[in-house]
């Protein structure tokens, strides 16, 4: 059954059509990759789903309920949480407190919040940094914290915006393992990533955006052979993986 249905969603900024009439479905438990050249509208689409921007047209249906145009905090309470492309931890709070914000204000609020926050940190491998101020974390750890915070809210659908970009190979492999284990826990994931090897290796299905429009929606091996996709990436080679 479809958990998320994006129906004819557009988002304009003045005359610019950042997202243009996109239809997309994400099934329960699926891991869908969202790719496209720079400026294709991937992050804008994420922000529309997360409630940061209201859609200019179209509907976002989550769990059979329309969530398009709701405030981000209400969207979070429905069960959708996103991470930010440019990490934005609360710098003067500790790592544990950062996660605690999501745990205390998020979608699932049961049990002892500190205990739950610790469990989340344990899960993402940041437990040893729990009492460090977020501003003192390294970039890989900040990216992990971004994921941990989002997980703390207890999402049904997790939107991951380039959580692997900028990491070295070892770190990237660790984060890929983390994303797989999040999926095993039953969380549905929609992720943006530029690294083809990552996205091909993780996704059940890949949606390709180009100039705000959807140009492909298929399993990884099919997408990498799609002439339209190859044309969109002209000059780059998406099949190198």
């Amino acid at each position: 059954m479809a958990l998320l249905e994006v129906q004819g969603v557009s988002r304009y900024f003045g005359g610019l059509r950042a997202v243009d009439h996109v239809d997309m479905v994400v099934g329960e438990g699926e891991l869908v990759g969202l790719i496209g050249p720079n400026g294709a509208g991937k992050t804008t689409l994420f922000r529309v789903i997360a409630g940061v921007y209201p859609p200019s047209a179209g509907q976002v249906i989550f769990n059979g309920e329309s969530v398009g145009g709701l405030h981000p905090n209400r969207v979070c309470h429905k069960g959708i949480t996103s991470t930010h492309q440019v990490v934005r931890p609360f710098p003067a709070l500790t790592v544990l407190e950062n996660v605690l914000v999501g745990v205390q204000y998020g979608n699932v609020r049961s049990g002892d919040p500190r205990q739950r926050a610790r469990e989340v940190l344990e899960f993402v491998g940041l437990a040893h940094r729990a009492d460090v101020l977020a501003r003192n974390l390294t970039l890989p750890d900040r990216k992990r914290l971004e994921v941990a915070r989002a997980l703390g809210t207890g999402p049904k659908l997790l939107l991951l915006d380039e959580v692997i970009a900028g990491l070295n190979q070892t770190e990237a492999a660790r984060t890929m393992d983390l994303i797989r284990s999040i999926k095993r826990q039953g969380v549905t994931i929609l992720m943006i990533e530029h690294n083809m090897r990552v996205i091909m290796g993780l996704s059940d299905r890949i949606v390709v955006l180009h100039h705000g429009e959807k140009i492909a929606d298929a399993p990884p091996e099919q997408v990498s052979r799609d002439p339209k996709v190859i044309e969109a990436y002209l000059g780059e080679s998406p099949v190198s993986a």
Binding site: N73, C76, H84, A92, G106, A150
Partner: peptide
């Protein structure tokens, strides 16, 4: 308190706080 944590969070980054469910 939870109120204080929410206030500190929205003070530092309102947009991030809202994504995490805080009604700023």
């Amino acid at each position: 308190s939870k109120l204080g944590l929410g206030l500190f969070a929205l003070n530092m980054d309102p947009e991030a706080a809202e994504t995490l469910g805080v009604d700023t």
